[in-house]
Design a binder for these strands. Structure first.
Lengths: 131, 131
DNA sequence: CTTGACCTTCCTGTTACTGGAAGGTCTATG
DNA sequence: CATAGACCTTCCAGTAACAGGAAGGTCAAG
């Protein structure tokens, strides 16, 4: 299967698939004309990568996870450790964003949004305690 | 005030302050020796930027907000529009992360994390409906 | 006059791609 | 057989918002 077919099967852009080969995540064969040929296993790995990326794992996490996926003698503890760290990172990010949301939401609510210059949002950013 | 002083006053790394000058967010004076000199207004603007960045605004949003901050004839509606869009983007990101968190949390819980290879996390990523 | 703490500019690297240029290949049709 | 259009290839540049580091100028103290 050519790259466009692989793209459609996996949902990954062709550009991304080439990039994944570039950084050594996959190693598809080449036809005589230089075109990449994707085996079932390649497609499987690409799908794995797409799903892992969709869960927010970094490329390096994906590399490790894919290695474990293909390692019959793995210990599931290794996988769990990676996933747990990632989960913690996500939870931290959520907390950060929620803090921002609360502040922003308050500011947006308090701003009249008319054609006059008075603006509690700018006042807050400028360091005044409040409008 | 030199750059290190400005850094300490604003909490921004000196590198970041130089970067902000580079992209035209601030225009500190230069002393005869080439050193940057930060006026009270510069420090004020840097603090504004630091706070806006801490709320997750992009640099380009910050540029627009700072412009409005310094524009006595602004309409607060412009500020509010920027803030509202940003708030929506944050809320969307939170939702995305929460979806990831739920999936990941389930997977982590279901994985034994021992020295055996069986792993529902990998099974899920690999596309099986469940271990 | 030297040492160490400042300051400067410039270049590279980061993350995970995306866009685009220049050019080779394949297939269908006239 | 020629050609058009849809593929494919590699390579280069750009994105966001800086961080790290090299090479070199400046300043205050001893």
């Amino acid at each position: 299967m050519n790259i466009q077919g692989a793209s459609e099967k996996t949902g990954l852009p062709a550009k991304t698939i080439r990039y994944y080969e570039d950084i050594g995540l996959i190693q598809p064969d080449r036809a005589a004309n230089g075109y990449r040929h994707f085996s079932t296993r390649d497609l499987h790995n690409l799908t794995f990568l797409a799903r892992a990326r969709a869960l927010g794992f970094t490329i390096e996490d994906c590399r490790a996870l894919l290695g474990l996926y293909e390692d019959e003698s793995r210990a599931s503890a290794e996988v769990k450790t990676i996933a747990q760290k990632h989960l913690q990172a996500i939870e931290e990010k959520i907390r950060d964003l929620q803090t921002m949301r609360e502040t922003l939401s308050d500011l947006v609510t308090s701003c009249h949004g008319d054609n006059r210059p008075d603006c509690p949002i700018l006042s807050d950013l400028g360091g005044s305690s409040r409008d």
